[in-house]
Design a protein around this nucleic acid. Structure first.
Lengths: 212, 212
DNA sequence: CAAAAACCTGACCAAAGCGTCAGTTTTTTC
DNA sequence: GAAAAAACTGACGCTTTGGTCAGGTTTTTG
């Protein structure tokens, strides 16, 4: 109707791909890869099915794009684990960052969980290696803190996993959390309580020398 | 060919239903409800499709049966949380029990995770209420320990959830765990390490009065 | 051992699924 | 402002899917 006047270059493509990916990640996160129908993605994104296929070759292509996008964010939160900081602050901030992320990106968090539940078969060797390297690097920082006597001697990898597990829990298993807390939905307050609890447990657990 | 001589009552039914459920829980745990095809269940169980339908009305019926079975085990592990015990022992045993369960019942654990990721839509109001009551009851035990000065003042619900999250992590997200630990698969030793780590964190974190 | 009950199954649907395509409309380019 | 490029789409084809069914076989029962 109205002719778009100025700069628009590849804007249409960008906008529509975004629409599709947004609809797709939501569906994939709830129904998994096999359980998600392209027709659903098409409907949820408001684009006709044939148009979805105009932008993405196959369902796999959509999924792979999402995986790629997700992994790009994997390292970001780990930036908090910085050797020049005090472990208490660094860990506190890291837990906060992880918690905030999974809360504000509920859908992405669940999408990731879904893919992992399925065995991470969409992760390329390269992507796995990447996750591994980042983690290894940060584990070294933790080890540094331990050697400096600032942290109890704890396995950094398991420490990380405990943090990941407990922070993601509230996003991925919100149903369990809601039932447990006798609520119909989790509030900001609940997330705050969860955060306090995790920080208390983890910091108390590893800041002072463990008595084994 | 050979006539079965003695007692067999409803054994055929029991055996075949078991076959179907076993195949189904495995598939559901990996592909979710929508992603699992009855033909797959039929193939995996070794029974022709029409025979599967002889034992179960619909796909939903199979799924619901599994949910039911799973929930029956929800409370069992919580038995360890017994007011007459010392919190340290009780928590240690509970963590161990949870960990062992999810490890030995990989598939069930993932099935449960899958259902929760999907929002727990297959859980009836009654089943949710049940989970809630059991948890509430055990939370009261924790509160008792806190009042008795045996435990730091921590929210029991969040304590439970942290335990659930961290113990299930290794089963549900074995892929992440394997990548993190640079292994192709988790060994018994890895689980042991994980257990030690969780116990250390949680017990250190809540046994002594928290310094907040 | 015969009738009844339980169990089994190949073949068959209608609906839904993924992906295609030929042709139209809109936007961009020069 | 016309040709080229990009975006769009209804309708279609072929496969898979959940579920049915009519009739068969095996087991149990009395």
């Amino acid at each position: 109707m109205v002719a778009p006047k100025k700069n628009s270059e590849a804007r249409i493509r960008a906008r529509n791909e975004a629409k599709i990916l947004k609809a797709a990640v939501d569906l994939f996160s709830r129904k998994g890869f096999d359980g998600t129908r392209i027709a659903e993605i098409s409907q949820a994104s408001g684009l006709p099915k044939a148009n979805v296929y105009y932008y993405f070759e196959t369902k796999e292509a959509i999924y792979a794009t999402l995986i790629e996008r997700l992994l790009a964010g994997w390292d970001r939160a780990l930036d908090h684990i910085d050797p020049s900081r005090e472990p208490e602050d660094a860990l506190r901030d890291y837990i906060r960052a992880k918690m905030d992320y999974s809360r504000q990106n509920l859908v992405d968090s669940r999408f990731f969980a879904n893919e992992m539940l399925r065995g991470g078969r969409f992760l390329s060797r390269k992507q796995k290696k990447h996750m591994q390297n980042i983690t290894k690097e940060k584990a070294a920082v933790i080890d540094g803190w331990i050697k400096a006597g600032k942290l109890a001697p704890i396995d950094p990898n398991h420490l990380f996993m405990t943090i990941w597990a407990s922070t993601q829990f509230y996003a991925d298993f919100a149903t369990v959390a809601a039932v447990t807390l006798c609520k119909s939905r989790l509030t900001a307050r609940d997330y705050e309580d969860a955060y306090d609890n995790i920080v208390t447990l983890i910091l108390n657990g590893c800041l002072k020398p463990a008595s084994k």
